[in-house]
Design a protein around this nucleic acid. Structure first.
Lengths: 342, 342
DNA sequence: TTGAAAGCGCTAACAC
DNA sequence: GTGTTAGCGCTTTCAA
């Protein structure tokens, strides 16, 4: 059948020979160049199918200077690898990215940047051509990594706005709007004495949620909202709730900046004999696992994480296609998920 | 200073020229070949440092036929992308892999195989040279993917033993031993009427846990252990606990095959006015987030997931270095984490 | 020990 | 429209 004994995986010359055309033509067909004779194109495609040929990505990259891949950089504080990945939030972001990129045939390289060394390595990894651009997901808003990528002129997109202004594209959530939705819900239920459990003050997202909530409450004629700060953990939510209860024993509405703290609040409310949502209405934020696990199930503000992750990927792809394009941002609206707690 | 205007990123010839040696020698130094004149080697290293040179991975791959990368394949049932990544278990495996591989300078490509199409794509991805081997993490034990990789002769290692025997390397947990530890703990506490909430019968891990628990209890003189099957969810844990309570109202010890079901059990026990651990001792499995969030905090059996993930990576690297090596497996011991519920 | 030279598989001018 | 040819940047015989 064939003129020569096939050795190893087939290459373009094998295809060309088999189809009776030149390497150039075979290459054209494979890359979808339209100006090719029908018959020849068909012959090439047949050869490809029969041999199971797939182009060698290294050879391709070498000639056209593109890696055909992108890096998904998870940037955490020093040495906090496992914690980062154990957080479903990052898992969902990763899932959204992988899912979307999979549809265009690209599989991201996961790189962990949790030390200065790792950060430079990450930059070099893409700088040297292992990836055409980077998706950055940080645990901390004041991450130095975005700056590094920008400085190298590497196409990059952030998940969540950076704490300090950096000329870089990003996607983010309208945290303030989400908080306002919570306020609206509480007010609609008729809550008169509403309090809030805020997140860490140094986190832009936590700030936005607090500010958004206060502003919305002010619009509803409640300019003063008692607040206790937590750090997004269950225990801090419990502590904050206890503090708030001491300050305002007759409170009837709680907005917590995340679900875990809301779960903590639910617990102390229950221990104090307050019925939720009858005595006190509680709303969380994120629609994460704890929201489902809580009893009563938590009414919460959800973020379209996967959608945001997909958009982030799309933006990066565009940026890679046209590196001179200016940074852009896209802000997504959260939505209220009504369950039993409010 | 330099003889020619530097255009773009430096290449090996730039280094060679700068160091006054041939490309071959420069390459040798960079690749750590020992038989190079001290002075020349020093000159090359200096040139590398001054230019910030890094080898082009595509060119390297092209010549030596190795990708210098590996694929981390998450294989789920059809279309269940997000769910998979939202599960901290997979997050921890991923974290362990990324962390370990990072130490040897390699960043895995994440590929999601959640459809037949995606599975073939995944195989092709590495077959065509994007990766030298694959790490496989499946949600279902009867995953067809391991077989596909084996059939292609691609180096691959599994996290958890496959349901049907396949000649492939894997790491796994001694699930039965973990269950036995739970049994021992319960018996030591003096529990007399112990029951268990099992996982899905078609999952090898769940089977092992149930079998291990029964065998251990039998050794302690308790050949009969009432069992109710759940599906690893909170709700199924609640249902199972209710069933068991109906069957054995005076039970005083519960072993649940995972923490989420144990949390469910804790809840109904509490609702029925049983005090944990005084009236009833409860032990979970996995030491996952719910174990911390539960009240009382859950005593549970922990798996060294990150360690297992690192070992899986190590095994793959060895396999890539010597593809003719036979499949090997490594089984890790779980350990008891004592908290408040038992 | 070192250098010259031959590719690895592919794409993209550039002629035909 | 199609084929020829020149590399992309690197490693690696093979001589010297």
């Amino acid at each position: 059948m064939s003129s020569k004994p096939a050795k190893g995986t087939p290459t373009l010359v094998d295809i060309a020979k088999l189809a009776g055309v030149s390497r150039a033509t075979a290459s054209r067909v494979i890359n979808g160049v339209p100006t090719v004779d029908k018959a020849m194109a068909a012959a090439v495609r047949k050869a490809v199918k029969s041999t199971g040929y797939t182009p060698n990505p290294a050879a391709r990259s070498l000639v056209n200077g593109k890696a055909g891949s992108i890096a998904l950089v998870i940037s955490g504080s020093d040495g906090s690898a496992e914690q980062v990945f154990g957080d479903p939030f990052f898992g969902r972001v990763t899932g959204g990215v992988v899912k979307y990129l999979g549809t265009v045939g690209i599989h991201p390289s996961l790189v962990l940047a949790d030390s200065d060394q790792a950060r430079t390595d990450a930059v070099n990894f893409v700088r040297r051509g292992n990836a055409d651009g980077a998706l950055l997901v940080s645990t901390h808003a004041d991450d130095p990594l975005p700056g590094l990528f920008v400085a190298e002129g590497i196409p990059a997109v952030l998940f969540a706005r950076p704490a300090r202004p950096v000329p870089i594209s990003f996607v983010d959530l309208a945290h303030g709007r989400g908080a306002a939705m919570a306020a609206e819900r509480l007010v609609e239920r008729g809550c008169q004495r509403v309090v809030t459990i805020a997140g860490p003050a140094d986190l832009p997202a936590a700030q936005d949620r607090l500010t958004g909530f206060r502003q919305a409450m002010a619009q509803y004629g409640k300019p003063y909202v008692p607040v206790a700060e937590g750090n997004f953990t269950l225990a801090s939510g419990e502590a904050a709730m206890a503090t708030l209860l001491a300050e305002q024993p007759d409170l009837d509405g709680v907005f917590a900046a995340n679900d875990l703290m809301a779960s903590g609040a639910l617990r102390v409310l229950r221990d104090r004999g307050r019925s939720v949502p009858d005595d006190v209405a509680v709303i969380g934020f994120d629609d994460s696992e704890p929201a489902h696990a809580a009893r009563p199930r938590l009414t919460t503000i959800a973020q379209p994480i996967e959608e945001m992750a997909a958009e982030m990927s799309r933006i990066l792809l565009d940026l890679i296609a046209d590196p001179s394009a200016p940074p852009i941002s896209k802000i997504f609206d959260p939505y209220l998920v009504t369950r039993d707690s409010a």
